[in-house]
Design a protein around this nucleic acid. Sequence first.
DNA 1: AACCCCGCCAACCGCTATCAC
DNA 2: AGTGATAGCGGTTGGCGGGGT
Length: 243
Amino acid sequence: MGRSPCCEKAHTNKGAWTKEEDDRLIAYIRAHGEGCWRSLPKAAGLLRCGKSCRLRWINYLRPDLKRGNFTEEEDELIIKLHSLLGNKWSLIAGRLPGRTDNEIKNYWNTHIRRKLLSRGIDPSTHRPINEPAQEVTTISFSSAAVKVEEKITSGFVIKEEKSPVRERCPDLNLDLRISPPYHHQSEPLKTGGRTSSICFACSLGIQNSKDCNCSNGTSSSGTGYDFLGLKNGVLDYRSLEMK
DNA sequence: AACCCCGCCAACCGCTATCAC
DNA sequence: AGTGATAGCGGTTGGCGGGGT
């Protein structure tokens, strides 16, 4: 059984948006705010499907969009996040202010995939291309969780709470938590005779990030990591902020 | 100048998740 | 609990522009 169409296709425009349509959409949202996309086109005097309006606003017209080239810092962060989250573009976009899921998805497919391939890394598994195939762990959700297993992937410790029933299907009934990179307690970093620790942001190579809270960084939010929302050093995947 | 190829990216499509009744 | 409506997500498509021949 298919879904009913979100709008009457016979009476809607498709394809590229005109300046006038953009202006109408911006003016309407400025006056009335976002929400109720289905009724928005009619109210705004647009011959567009609500879905199309939403996409246009979110991906192109929103005033907080950054636009422009991605920085090297953003590149690396996207790679790291993708290695953890896979193609969860909206989650990845949620950690890159001013970037949209569509933009990141396009950028991944056009630039980063090639970049990783040129480094000899498989963009989907984040493993060396010539490395023999290994079991791939996918992050997914579940409330039924019993056993906990830790894995170290790309510098992150991932705690898997495994269901005893579905263990052979890693995509099912997993409840994951992502913690900061594993550091041996016996190997503290020493700087100029002083012992210091490196924060998670620095471990990703973004020392000047607002998420940096190690002793080398500028922020000082006390002990424990808070990168990517990792309160108390552990990220509950379900708490990742959605757009 | 004309044609072709290819990369980029905005937009669409189909699906799932969520909510209201 | 079941159903329909709506929002949101991710994969895919297609138009456009730039570079090469």
